[in-house]
Design a protein around this nucleic acid. Sequence first.
DNA 1: TCAATTCCGTTGAAAATTCAACATACTTTA
DNA 2: TAAAGTATGTTGAATTTTCAACGGAATTGA
Lengths: 219, 219
Amino acid sequence: MKKYLEILLQCPLFSEIAPENLTVMLTCLGARIEHFDKKYTILAEGNPAKYIGIVLTGSAQMIRVDYYGNRSLLAEIEPTQLFGEAFACAEVSSVPVTIVATEPCDVMLVECDHVLHTCTNHCTFHQQLIFNLMKALAAQNLQFHQKLEITSKRTTREKLMTYLDRQAQKHKSAEFEIPFDRQELADYLEVDRSGLSAEISKLRREGILDCEKNRFILL
Amino acid sequence: MKKYLEILLQCPLFSEIAPENLTVMLTCLGARIEHFDKKYTILAEGNPAKYIGIVLTGSAQMIRVDYYGNRSLLAEIEPTQLFGEAFACAEVSSVPVTIVATEPCDVMLVECDHVLHTCTNHCTFHQQLIFNLMKALAAQNLQFHQKLEITSKRTTREKLMTYLDRQAQKHKSAEFEIPFDRQELADYLEVDRSGLSAEISKLRREGILDCEKNRFILL
DNA sequence: TCAATTCCGTTGAAAATTCAACATACTTTA
DNA sequence: TAAAGTATGTTGAATTTTCAACGGAATTGA
């Protein structure tokens, strides 16, 4: 556990928590760390929504695969970010999404009950944790707004350009790398991969953008 | 203010708040009530995100209209429900959506700062309010998951059927009313209105559903 | 290093969506 | 009550997406 304290202190869930209090707190929360190799499922759809997850190293994705096998990518999850907290806090019986490791991952799982309900010892901490959770949920809400803004566009071109504009804003540069390969980008934009490739080629020919692999330049 | 206490006590934001404490609390929060006629804008895109809104009577919608005038309907907001809380809590500078009244509305606005930051008098209340806000944000998160599940489908038929299935589940009945007219339903599903009408007719002819106005029956 | 696998761009045909226009029924309001 | 306005369904053409299939490039792993 020790080696992750650095990362945990940067996690939004532990914002404003004093380093010296973190260790004892983690045991109180029933925290445990698990490792997942690339492509492994960290949390499968249908499982009980009891845990809040924190990605410590590597990276993961929140995905949903429907009845017909259509895969939709809901969010990229990077170190220090949370997952599963919305379902645990809303007390749904089971999670409606799947979390998969896209790189070898170390993940911390804490029991949501222990976060929300004050225990005998650490009452003051819980208040801060709930506040932090609230902030994290609000931030995730914004992420979904952004995703909805993108996917509400009707054409592949508009979805792609809206996504790339937002990425450029985020990186404060017209040149940036995205965390997706082509199939993942298509799954995030909710479009067909081959159609997306065709559209990217077209935008290149038109001199609107350039790209190599997952590195894009808006011209 | 008095006449709304009943409704306010059922609002998720004031869950577990004792009735006798509510009135004094409202003044402490800088609460004020405003009325909006049908079709009026309650909160316009671009405005500062300082307030948490509560719909007391009537109904409202969260919408976004893009550059080209495409209208997208993000959520229906009914009495006791909140709006704007995600943006206020995430401390974004301005709201990226518009809230409009679909029926004559009474709306309460409270200053988010006053909710989040403990004042001199009512510290114990604030903790409960933050907890309630956290719950509300988690619930709204789920709503967006549901909307994303629907709009991630690739065809109008699949989007419509997924939406109607969820409504049937919600009402625990194959027969139910939806809160949208055809244009609004199209805006929620992110599809063309005329295409939606055509698809509904087709599903009727195939004996899969029946409907009259906004009342649907799944067969 | 070599073989196997994955990733990516291209293509053409089929399917679906969008768009504009119009007719009818319904609602609102003067 | 009549007129104006709104909501809904229908249609056909144009646009766009999806789907399946393929080949070459890049990556992985034995």
